[in-house]
Design a binder for these strands. Sequence first.
DNA 1: TGATGATAGTTTAGTATTAAACTAATTAAA
DNA 2: TTTAATTAGTTTAATACTAAACTATCATCA
Lengths: 135, 135
Amino acid sequence: MPKIDVGRIWSLNYRLLTSVIIDVAPGIAELGLEIKELFVLAEVDAHPHPAELAGVLCMPKPSVTMYVKRLEAAGFLRREIDSADLRRHRLILTPEGRKTMARGLALLSKAFGSRLARLKPAQQSELAALLEKLS
Amino acid sequence: MPKIDVGRIWSLNYRLLTSVIIDVAPGIAELGLEIKELFVLAEVDAHPHPAELAGVLCMPKPSVTMYVKRLEAAGFLRREIDSADLRRHRLILTPEGRKTMARGLALLSKAFGSRLARLKPAQQSELAALLEKLS
DNA sequence: TGATGATAGTTTAGTATTAAACTAATTAAA
DNA sequence: TTTAATTAGTTTAATACTAAACTATCATCA
């Protein structure tokens, strides 16, 4: 059996993601967002606390601080003090933030989806399942 | 048929790559490299001119200028003027650069490979084939 | 030729990112 | 309790990144 070239899988995948990000950045910018801010918005429902967001998104805490600050200033989310733990900030999407997030994710889906479309539906499911196992 | 969630595939994949990079960064740093410098080294044989590297690696030209400058200073590559076109710099890996590149790629393969190992060999081939189609 | 436009690579200058140190709140142990 | 250790989030200070402008060379075409 042929040995898989890990480096090749890696670089194919890396370039795929990078080029999709480059494609999609201008559209995202029109929404008043940066890509990473969109990632933050997209995880706020599931992980409403900054420290969790940093963990889930693999980004340092100060970056989250800054993105949250900007997202808040833009009216896309607000924060409440968690009364059970006064250190924690609970983040909440505003309706505007939710709408903008949906638009941003739609752009990303469209850009990535147009590549995914090269695969048959069954292959797309297969890819999703394989990535799921890797994560 | 269930509709595939493009955003989910995306974020699974994005997080996979990010976390592998975070895992591998300290080891790469011990070689005297940054991750992106390693990516540059790895493509120099196939694309010996900075402008091409920028295209292939999806990074801006000034970034390539900077990485090349550091890699040259570290003795990992040298440059020659292309006598056919005096604007162009032909980049050449030094033996030391080649050795360091191999070590860096080995680290990356090991880190990514340890995730890939969750898949059976046939599934690894399948993943490689799917990513190939997407690139 | 020589004028115009394109391309290779660099520099500059401003923004983005992040490691390290910090403040404040919580928890656990003595 | 009070002390020490931990955790949440922020600030600071330094580095990394990159858009825009630049220099030099090349290519095209009148």
